[in-house]
């Protein structure tokens, strides 16, 4: 299994599309920091964290991680690789889980670098403008935990993307997710009761790390735990479905 995982990680690393995605991720972060540099004195870093601006910026690397996960298992090279792999390792379960785990693990360095650059850049810009808005150590801790949660979310997104890629076997799993996010934001996000089950809203709540919030009934809810369970459940359901399909479906 370790050999399979290592082979998949190597294959993931050498694919040109993955390199382009990593470059796009870093470019995006630099662009965000460049724009923020012009208005660093508009709001404090603590305010940006509380308003969810930082978590919003972290969502793009997460989506790109999902795209990378889809591309790991789709396309001619991926199909041929899977076929070749199955001729030397006929245990389909091992092959499948190695792909899903490899997708989740492979995106970590890129997203970690992107989050680190984003967090350090934001902190540096606001410290320079003397607009931190809180104790530096506390802000640094919050930023670190936000980055860690974004990293976990990116790993889940990449694993889910790989599972979805196995299911549909086409690259259009990427626009499929984009369409879903659009519906999620416009339909589920608009109505208050359905918002509890919106993937985007829960991903945002997870990255923000909202501990408590006032629910509609006036009771204190636990959005962080709810979001974590929901996102984990969706990822687990997707990967299990992908496994069942991969086990019984013909390999092209």
């Amino acid at each position: 299994m370790t050999g399979l995982l290592w082979a998949e990680l190597r294959r993931f690393g050498v694919r040109p599309a993955i390199r382009w995605i990593a470059a796009g991720m870093l470019l995006y972060v630099v662009l965000v920091l460049g724009l923020e540099a012009f208005e660093a004195d508009a709001s404090t870093l603590a305010g940006l964290l509380a308003d969810g601006d930082i978590s919003f910026y972290a969502m793009t690397p997460v989506f790109l991680a999902y795209v990378a996960g889809v591309l790991l298992v789709t396309g001619d090279a991926a199909s041929g690789g899977t076929r070749a792999l199955l001729t030397v390792e006929p245990r389909r379960g091992r092959v499948y889980w190695s792909k899903v785990v490899a997708a989740g693990v492979a995106v970590l360095p890129g997203v970690a670098v992107a989050c680190a650059v984003l967090g350090l850049g934001m902190y540096g810009l606001h410290a320079r403008a003397d607009m931190l808005g809180g104790p530096p150590s506390e802000l640094a801790l919050v930023l670190t935990w936000t980055g860690v949660r974004a990293l976990v979310l990116a790993a889940c997104a990449a694993a889910g993307g790989a599972a979805l890629g196995v299911l549909v076997r086409r690259w259009w799993a990427v626009p499929l997710a984009a369409a879903w996010f659009l519906i999620d934001e416009r339909v589920l996000g608009a109505s208050s009761p359905a918002r509890h089950w919106s993937l985007l809203a829960n991903a945002d709540a997870w990255v923000r790390g909202t501990e408590t919030a006032l629910s509609g009934d006036g009771l204190l809810a636990v959005p962080l735990l709810h979001s974590a369970l929901l996102l984990l459940g969706v990822t687990a359901a997707l990967t299990l479905l992908g496994w069942v399909v991969f086990r019984y479906r013909d390999v092209r």
């Binding site: 001619d76 199909s79 070749a84």
Partner: peptide, 19 residues
């Protein structure tokens, strides 16, 4: 097939090597 792993080698279609 898991018991046959290592006893069968196959060339069926393109192997999907990285260019």
């Amino acid at each position: 097939l898991p018991d046959l792993a290592g006893r069968i080698g196959a060339v069926v279609g393109e192997p999907g090597f990285q260019a």
